[in-house]
Design a protein around this nucleic acid. Sequence first.
DNA 1: CTGAAAGCGCTTACAG
DNA 2: CTGAAAGCGCTTACAG
Lengths: 341, 341
Amino acid sequence: MVTQKDVAKYAGVSFITVSRVVNKEPNVKEETRKKVEQAIKEIGYFPGFAGKALNSGRCNTIAILTPINFNVVSRSEYLLGVISGIQDVCRKNEADILLIPFSEDDKNFDFLRPFRQRKIDGSIFVGLKQMPTNVIEEIKLRKLPCVIVGDRKIDESFSWVDTDNERAGYETTKRIWEKGHRKIAFYGVLNSIYNKNIFDREKGFRRAILELSGKPVSEEYIFRSSYDQKSAAENFLPFFSLKEKPTAMFCSTDNHIPPVICELSKHGIKVPDDFSIVGFDGIFQDQMFYNFSIATNVQPFSIMGKRAAEILFGYINKTSVEIIQEEIPVKFQDGGSLKQI
Amino acid sequence: MVTQKDVAKYAGVSFITVSRVVNKEPNVKEETRKKVEQAIKEIGYFPGFAGKALNSGRCNTIAILTPINFNVVSRSEYLLGVISGIQDVCRKNEADILLIPFSEDDKNFDFLRPFRQRKIDGSIFVGLKQMPTNVIEEIKLRKLPCVIVGDRKIDESFSWVDTDNERAGYETTKRIWEKGHRKIAFYGVLNSIYNKNIFDREKGFRRAILELSGKPVSEEYIFRSSYDQKSAAENFLPFFSLKEKPTAMFCSTDNHIPPVICELSKHGIKVPDDFSIVGFDGIFQDQMFYNFSIATNVQPFSIMGKRAAEILFGYINKTSVEIIQEEIPVKFQDGGSLKQI
DNA sequence: CTGAAAGCGCTTACAG
DNA sequence: CTGAAAGCGCTTACAG
């Protein structure tokens, strides 16, 4: 490895002067600087990170900690979108991303090792699930800055960035109503899956229905399943026994849309002519699965990542200390799947 | 930060003994070991990585370098699948993943900085595109081990892991033939997009058709587009002017299937009753977009990542030096989209 | 079995 | 403007 010493010898100066030139410190004679720069170029020196890390206690690396199961489609979109936003900010800070995917079930995997090793300056937790207790403890113990993207415990004092799900749930329902629909169903997730965001969408839905119709939501218009499409198809079946069928459905995640459309088509019900559907997430936007586009709420994945990283680097660079909690608006995107009746 | 010195003082030994205990060296009196272990536990010591990295020249981090555009759906599946395989191997080696996504177009982003900084022990290049020349040069200059997943230049002396696309293209075509189809189209990518894998699938297709029919493929049965679905829809249009329409199509990537089905349905042609379709990649496997499953070739993303990482750690741990180039078989998965006629 | 010395590549005062 | 000294946290010989 080429070190400062090698450059020093080559340029005929001390390695301290080399360090000064590398760090663009002002107190170097122009002539010396030139000489050193020339030497650096000629022998191909680039400062190794380990020496600096040891010295400064900083390694210019942040962790992306995520419990996301990589094999579930919609989560990939979410994760990669957030990462791309984080990366933009990392570039500006000349920092790198240590990707740490983990499963809570796997007790044998010491995924917090990099935290204890001081291999990172801070972390961003990207989750559909909440941050596990052991992660919270470790972060607090090590006093490592952390920002959460998405779901989090209400009582925790972390900074976070999320979307305004209640508002979006409310607005979306209102839009469906304005298209003439009066019997509107909602497809959420099982109560056993704690997902604050999706529950907030449901809250907004309920608020809108109460406000618009003057009555609370009919509970038989609420469907629930796990995240996967098979479960969504099965749990949709009670729909076909309903006496008064809804004319529209608000799906709390786009992932529920394909199974719903599939089941409906088996019963000869066509979207959007016979039934309207609106989703959430925006993960099928560029996909041509249907000959109509899908009305949905597009999540600003990349912007969320960007904001989270900006907040994190505020802490790392010590330009900020306060806790920041931000809700970023999702954008409704109209589509052929929502029809005026 | 709690250091070995702190432990040493607390346990009444020298920090060298602490180092010995931490590294489980044999020459330590059992009593001393106990005492040190107790001290470590009580004051919460964990070895920082920087000191070791500086000393050993190793940082137990590997880079995943990828030119993949995160906003294109099918690539997300590919990338995350490969990463999950890599991660399994990293865990066994107590190593971490530095994720470096880059765009060749962006000349301002010095994405090779971690290579020059010696912030990684090696790298895995995950690409649909080939590794750019400047990356190859940097890797050779730094003598950093590297394994390529997917496409690569033929003349380069890198280890790589890929799928056996020509064979799969051949076998798939044969299967379609065996289902009674005699007029079989192929949907590849534009020649301007160099993608060896997809071209190999086409090669296999051509070989099978020549062998089975005794005649080379009719060129009007070959369609080409870029990766995105809009382009695939547009470039499929010549199909409808064909005098003798194919009864089946082999899509070189699943991503082409939705636009093809969409355009066909506009012309009243139904899949699979009127037209059979087979894909490649296996990215829509758990999706219920259609009331039939999609026959496709499932790529072993995670296995590819795993093998690439195993080869890489062979180099890093100096247990292997030879160049390893492996083709992993893709698995044909039958589905309702391919019908016997 | 244990510790003092030297060094990994870098930076941060300090002295001149 | 430049360099010698000390130190970041660790490991690797070497001496006892």
